[in-house]
Amino acid sequence: MKNMNDIFNPEKEGSKNSPFDVPKGYFETFEDRLEAQITAMEEKPSRSRTIIRILKPVVGLAASFLLIMLLVKYPLNKITPSLTSLDDSSFVEDSDYWKEIILSNSIFIDDRALLQVMNNNETTSPGESDEIIATVSSELNDYEVFAELYN
């Protein structure tokens, strides 16, 4: 087209010719490229669907568990706030108090003293034991027992 007036002049040959071009062989190979793309696109969703199929029960279980936890915990908090507030952190905070109680009720003996007590028990002769039994079995009062022992 050489002149602006040719644009709307149907008498002029080539006035409506498209000025666009395509790469060589574009239309000849179009169907093959399109089919390849459709095949690739149809394969992709099937893979993702497989992953979704595998994950679906796991996700479902996790969601159900979470739901049950929420359904149990919140009503329980509302009904018994004092009980449910006694959580692990309160035990941690009170741990010093419990430690003191345990320590005050325990008798601590060092290893040497413990060994001595055990040895003393072993060195006690059967004769002495019999003597104690005889003394205990005789109906003596405390004063008489004391006198017997020191005489």
Partner: peptide
């Protein structure tokens, strides 16, 4: 791939 002349442009 545009092969038009100046008028077509």
């Amino acid at each position: 791939y545009f092969n038009g002349d100046e008028v077509q442009l």
